[in-house]
Structures are given as C-alpha cells and as structure tokens.
Write a protein that binds this DNA or RNA. Structure first.
Length: 260
DNA sequence: ACTACCTTCCGCCATT
DNA sequence: CAAATGGCGGAAGGTA
C-alpha cells in the first residue's frame, strides 16, 4: 500500500491551515495494512462510516483485487461521492514502479485541485517537493512551464515573460505587455493561473534553472544569469525556500554515483 | 542577526 | 444595476 496520496491530503491540510480533509485509513474488514516497508498500520473497517471520497491504493508485489474486493467497492460506491483507483494498480497489477508513487500523488493533487482550487494544489505540490509530471512521461514537462491562461492578454504576458526570462521582470512590465493596468493585470492573472504574477515568474525561473541543473552542464552561476536570478546567491536562497535544497544538491542528485 | 528599503499583493472604494 | 477597471495604502515578503 502506498501512502503517498495520504501525504498529499495531509499536506493540503497543512498548507491551508485548515482541516478540510478528514483522513481515514480503511481496509475491508478492519485488518491492518502494510506499507511498502512491511510496517503494519491500524486501519478502520470499511463501511464503518460513509465517505466523501475513497482512494484505492496499490499494493507492492501483491495480487490484483479479488472479486470480493471489487464487489465490496461496488457497494461502497453507493454511499461515496467518488472512488478513485490508482491506475497503475489496475494496469500493471503487481508491478510497482516509482512512477506509481508519483501517479498516486498526482491523483491526489487532482482531487485537491477540484476541491480547493489550483492554488492550493500547487502549494501542496511544492510542499511535497513533487513536481507534477505528466503520467508516463519521461518528458521533463512540468506544470509550471505549462502555465496557461484563458485570455489572450495574459498569454501574451506569459509569452513575453518566457522570452525575457533572463531579464528582470516587473509586474509593471508584464502588465504593459498585456496592455492592462498593473492592478487589473494582477487580478486577472491570478484568476486565470492561480498564482500571483511575481510568484509565477519566480516559478518559471525555478523550473528553468532546475531543468538546466539536471540536464545540462553549465555552472550554477551561469544558470543563475540565464534564468534571471542574476547571481548564484539569490538563486540558491530561492531554491532553499521552495525546494528545500540547494542547486548543487539537486544537480548531484540528478547524476548519482558516476564512478570511474 | 538586525535593519532599512523596495516590490508585490490584495482589500476596499470610487469611477467608468 | 452589474461588471470591469484603476487607485490607494497597509501588510507581507524579499533584497542588500
């Protein structure tokens, strides 16, 4: 059983300072469940109360769901608003991959986004230090770089920002690119992207820098200049704030154990 | 670590 | 009237 989705919901509670999600770990008969390290955890019996959302977790190296389980779930659905299955579980049965782990988190983030909006989902993702990757994607696409806006004006501003990432970008300049007053621009930008302008720019820089760290060989200072952080110290602080790690650490982690 | 300064964000209200 | 817009000022957060 993966507990990754649980962490995501807990984190959402944490970042909002709210107890929006009342989380229960349940099993069919109330038997304990094991996590991927084999640790046994107490669980409630399913059906003890009714649930708004049921997330069915995958199990490490274990059998596909039994007909009993399926029948049980079918019944459970009647008192539950929604039931989400981890697709890896269904598609791959016992095969467990790290992709499965992030798939579980993605699933939870999707639910959180529907419940509490884009902003909370993103804050949750950041706190988890998971970067929304597209399912099955080796592609280094990230949600942040795919920021998209509904209106042409905001899209124009985003295009301008991406093009001039290495320059200093102020809200005023962006507003100008969008042909809106700064006030109105901020308002619309936030409504469409779920992030404030400066925050979004910061995220674009972070994503770009992280990509360059992981994929390229440029020195950190060079990357800092290319991505608009200016100097490596500012970039470092920004990384620590949002990823909890320094740029060097991220680079090292992406090129593990190269020995000669 | 402290501080002084700057930008950004956002609620509120007036204006269009 | 409602909806969009713009200005103001304080709080927050980041920089030097």
């Amino acid at each position: 059983m993966s507990f990754a989705p649980i962490s995501a919901f807990e984190t959402a509670n944490f970042v909002t300072g709210d107890r929006f999600y009342d989380i229960h770990l349940v099993s069919e008969a109330g038997e304990k469940v094991s996590n991927s390290l084999g640790k046994r955890m107490d669980a409630e019996r399913l059906g003890g109360s009714s649930y708004d959302t049921l997330v069915v977790g995958a199990t490490v190296g274990v059998l596909p769901p039994t007909p009993d389980t399926v029948a049980f779930l079918r019944k459970a659905i009647t008192t539950t608003r929604r039931v989400e299955m981890d697709r890896i579980f269904i598609a791959d049965g016992p095969v467990w991959t790290s992709a499965g782990m992030t798939a579980g988190i993605d699933l939870a983030l999707g639910l959180i986004e529907r419940d509490m909006g884009q902003e909370v989902a993103r804050a949750t993702a950041r706190t988890l230090v998971v970067h929304h990757r597209r399912a099955g994607g080796q592609s280094q696409h990230s949600a942040m770089l795919e920021l998209d806006a509904k209106s042409d004006r905001i899209q124009t501003a985003l295009a301008f920002a991406r093009k001039n990432l290495r320059e200093q970008l102020t809200v005023e300049q962006l507003a100008e690119a969008a042909r809106l007053s700064p006030r109105q621009f901020s308002r619309i930008f936030k409504a469409e992207t779920g992030q404030s302008p400066a925050r979004a720019i910061q995220n674009l820089r972070l994503e770009a820098a992280r990509f360059m760290l992981e994929q390229g060989r440029l020195p950190v200072g060079e990357i800092a200049r290319e991505t608009g952080f200016g100097d490596w110290e500012r970039m470092r602080r920004s990384f620590r704030r949002t990823f909890g790690q320094t740029p060097q650490a991220i680079r090292n982690a992406s090129r593990p154990l190269t020995t000669f």
